[in-house]
């Protein structure tokens, strides 16, 4: 802050200085309010649409609808059940099956996507590529397609009866692959995610590379580094913060996998009610209409996502300093 003030004071803006000098008291008396006023719009939206629903969800998760025995053909009472919903969720194999599936998904899909995004970003940034802006746009366009639309689109490619891929296999006298079977569906979904988010990550990496000072490249070339050497020793280390960000978003995205399986479950029997944690929470809350238990599962998913993100941030931070 000190340097900033000095910088401003030294800048050639006489009005600022004179006005500051003329009414110092009044400025000081109000100064504390400015930052708060300017973050007020954000704060209001943040509290209304994030903090409040989250707190409400957690409160609801301690309740349940109960009947007092009998046939249950009269209105139930909403009663406090403490941690019962959480205990039930932790003992529900469905939830852990979902977590295991998104874990496997993330372990495979994230590295594949990140490496591809990095390679494409490096190609875009290298001098050898022509029509650079065209390729950059082409790689980014899928991200502009909403996730649900992307899933519907790929759903057509996966449906045996209408898929041009299956037709191509058949016309070559080959058995078309089953994209929707129990052993393939996860990778069919991974394919959609990669298609959508590859360009997005590529663009983050590419933008970070653009920010690298040109002097570094000049120095490297004088020292005899090849383009590959520059990529390895300058570009990749310099964009590490951007990669860290991309990875964090991808981890969160994997745990919260929902749109693609939700759309594809209409055409694939392999997607069950607890395919991913979010699908499970959705089914409990809105298919079984058990809002309280669903709320507890949602809170658990939020907590576990937070733990994973925090662990990742902590681990990668240590690496960077070392």
């Amino acid at each position: 802050m000190a340097t900033q003030t000095e910088h401003v004071a030294a800048s050639p803006v006489p009005e600022a200085i004179t006005s500051r000098a003329a009414k110092p008291r009044r400025t000081l008396s109000l100064a504390w309010i400015w930052p708060y006023l300017f973050i007020l719009p954000f704060l209001l939206v943040f509290v209304t649409f994030f903090v409040a629903p989250f707190v409400y969800d957690i409160i609801q998760s301690f309740y349940a609808e109960k009947h007092a025995g009998g046939l249950g053909l009269s209105p139930p009472k909403v009663v406090w059940v403490g941690l019962d919903n959480y205990v039930q969720a932790l003992h529900d194999p469905g939830l852990w099956d979902g977590f295991w599936r998104v874990f496997v998904f993330g372990i495979v899909q994230i590295p594949v996507m990140m490496v591809l995004a990095l390679l494409i970003a490096l190609l875009m940034d290298s001098v050898v590529i022509r029509f650079r802006s065209f390729f950059r746009l082409a790689a980014f366009v899928p991200y502009a397609v909403p996730g649900v639309v992307a899933a519907i689109l790929w759903g057509f490619f996966y449906t045996p009866g209408i898929s041009p891929i299956s037709q191509a296999f058949r016309s070559a006298q080959l058995t078309p692959p089953d994209f929707l079977g129990p052993s393939t569906i996860l990778w069919s979904i991974a394919n959609i995610s990669t298609w959508v988010y590859l360009g997005y990550n590529m663009l983050i990496f590419f933008a970070a590379m653009q920010a690298i000072p040109q002097e570094l490249y000049e120095a490297a070339r004088i020292d005899g580094l090849t383009e590959v050497g520059i990529a390895r020793h300058i570009k990749i280390p310099m964009i590490f913060p951007a990669m860290r960000l991309g990875l964090l978003f991808s981890i969160i995205g994997s745990i919260q996998l929902f749109n693609e399986p939700r759309i594809l479950e209409n055409i694939s029997g392999a997607i069950n009610e607890h395919f991913t944690p979010n699908i499970f929470a959705y089914n409990i809350a809105y298919i079984q209409s058990n809002y309280y238990y669903g709320g507890a599962i949602a809170a658990l998913i939020g907590f576990i996502t937070f733990v994973f993100s925090f662990a990742f941030m902590t681990l990668t931070q240590g690496k960077k300093r070392g």
Partner: peptide, 20 residues
């Protein structure tokens, strides 16, 4: 930031309007 004190009323008004 440094220019804001010129018209405090205006700035407060803007912020309040935005929030509202």
């Amino acid at each position: 930031m440094q220019h804001a004190p010129h018209r405090p009323i205006f700035a407060i008004g803007t912020a309040l309007l935005l929030s509202l």
